[in-house]
C-alpha cells in the first residue's frame, strides 16, 4: 500500500532517547534553584542502605555532576540510537532504556535535593527506601511510554518487494520451502580457547574467583563456534548451532530484496561476531560468501554462510508471496 513518508522512525526514536534526559536535567535544575536557599552548603549526596546519608559533596559540584551525567545520557543513548539504526529491535530497546535511565536518575536526584532541603546538618539527612522504589517505578513507566512512542519500524517505509532482476527459486503456490545451514567460524572458537588458556593461568596464579570472568567469556566464545542460518516463511533466523537461544530474526516484511556477496570480515566489518556499522549489520563468522538482505529501512543485513545464493533466491520468492498475500501464507 503506498503511503506518504512520515518523519523517519530513527528521528522519532532518537527523540525518545534524548528528550527524557534533557527534560530531567531541566527539572533537576529548576528544583535546585527553587530549593537553593534552604540547601546546606555541604549536601548529603549518597544515601546508604539504612536510608542514612554516608556521602557528601558541595552544592555546585553535585549539580555539575548530575547535569553532566544527564546530558551525557542524552548524548550516549541518542548516539547509540542513531548508530544502531540498522537493527530496529535493538534500537527500540536502546531508546526506551535511555528514557528509563534518565527517569531513574532524575527522580533520585530530586528526592536527594528535597531530603537535603531545610537540613541544618547534612549528616542528619535521611531518605526513605520508598523513594528508590518510586524511582524504579518512574523508570518503568518512562520505559513503557518510550517503547510505545518508538513505534514500529515498518511505519513510514514503503513495502516494495524484490526487483524483477533478483534471482528467484521456482516454487508452486502449494509448496512450502525452508533452507537451513550451519555457518562455522574459526576465529571465535580460537579466541575462546586462548581466553580459556588465559583463564587457566589466572586461576593458577591468582585463584579461581579472579578467573571466573575470563572462564565465562571463553566458554561463551567456544559455544559460538557456529550459527544455524534458516531462510523460510519467517524470514532470516540466526541461532547458535548448539542452542536455540538467543535467536535473531529478520521477518520477510522487513526484507526488500535478498542477494549474496563475498564479505571480508575485517575490512567490511572490522572483526567477527555480531557486527553493526552505519548502513549495515550482521553476523560475520568468517570471510567469504554471505547472505545479504537489503531491508525496507534501506540498510543491509549480512550473515556469512555457504550456499547463500540458494537462500537468497528462496527469500526473494517468499518475499514476493508475502507481498501478494499481505496476511502471510
Amino acid at each position: 500500500m503506498p503511503q506518504t513518508r512520515r518523519p523517519s522512525v530513527t528521528a522519532r526514536r532518537t527523540l525518545v532517547a534524548v528528550a527524557p534526559p534533557v527534560l530531567a536535567a531541566g527539572v533537576v535544575l529548576s528544583v535546585f534553584l527553587s530549593l537553593r536557599d534552604r540547601l546546606p552548603g555541604r549536601m548529603a549526596t549518597h544515601i546508604g542502605p539504612g536510608g542514612h546519608a554516608d556521602g557528601f559533596s558541595g552544592q555546585g559540584s553535585f549539580l555539575a555532576v548530575t547535569l553532566g551525567a544527564l546530558l551525557g545520557y542524552a548524548v550516549l543513548f541518542g548516539g547509540l540510537t542513531l548508530w544502531i539504526r540498522t537493527d530496529p529491535g535493538v534500537q527500540r530497546v536502546t531508546a526506551a532504556t535511555g528514557g528509563a535511565v534518565a527517569a531513574l536518575t532524575g527522580w533520585l536526584v530530586v528526592a536527594v535535593l528535597r531530603a537535603n532541603a531545610g537540613a541544618d546538618d547534612a549528616a542528619s539527612v535521611t531518605l526513605p527506601g520508598l523513594q528508590a522504589v518510586l524511582a524504579f517505578a518512574a523508570a518503568a513507566v518512562c520505559a513503557a511510554l518510550g517503547w510505545a512512542a518508538c513505534g514500529r519500524a515498518e511505519e513510514g517505509d514503503t513495502a516494495s518487494g524484490p526487483s524483477a532482476a533478483a534471482v528467484r527459486l521456482p516454487l508452486r503456490d502449494s509448496e512450502a520451502a525452508s533452507w537451513s545451514r550451519v555457518s562455522r567460524s574459526r576465529a571465535l572458537p580460537v579466541t575462546g580457547v586462548l581466553i580459556l588458556a588465559g583463564a587457566l593461568v589466572v586461576a593458577i596464579t591468582a585463584g579461581w574467583a579472579s578467573a571466573l570472568p575470563l572462564l565465562a567469556t571463553g566458554a561463551l566464545l567456544v559455544l559460538l563456534t557456529g550459527a544455524r542460518v534458516t531462510a523460510d516463511r519467517r524470514g532470516i533466523t540466526v541461532t547458535p548451532a548448539l542452542t536455540s537461544w538467543p535467536r535473531l530474526n529478520i521477518p520477510l516484511e522487513r526484507i526488500a530484496e535478498a542477494g549474496h556477496r563475498p564479505v571480508d570480515a575485517f575490512r567490511d566489518f572490522g572483526g567477527w561476531g555480531y557486527r553493526a556499522r552505519p548502513g549495515a549489520s550482521g553476523i560475520v563468522l568468517r570471510s567469504g560468501d554471505a547472505l545479504s538482505a537489503r531491508l525496507t529501512t534501506g540498510s543491509e543485513f549480512v550473515v556469512t554462510v555457504d550456499d547463500a545464493a540458494t537462500a537468497a533466491a528462496l527469500l526473494n520468492t517468499l518475499a514476493d508471496r508475502e507481498r501478494r498475500t499481505p496476511t502471510g501464507g
Binding site: 508452486r172 512450502a176 525452508s178 528462496l314
Partner: peptide
C-alpha cells in the same frame, strides 16, 4: 540444505 514440500502432491 533446502527442504521443500508440496501440499498438493500425492
Amino acid at each position: 540444505m533446502l527442504f521443500r514440500v508440496d501440499h498438493s502432491s500425492p
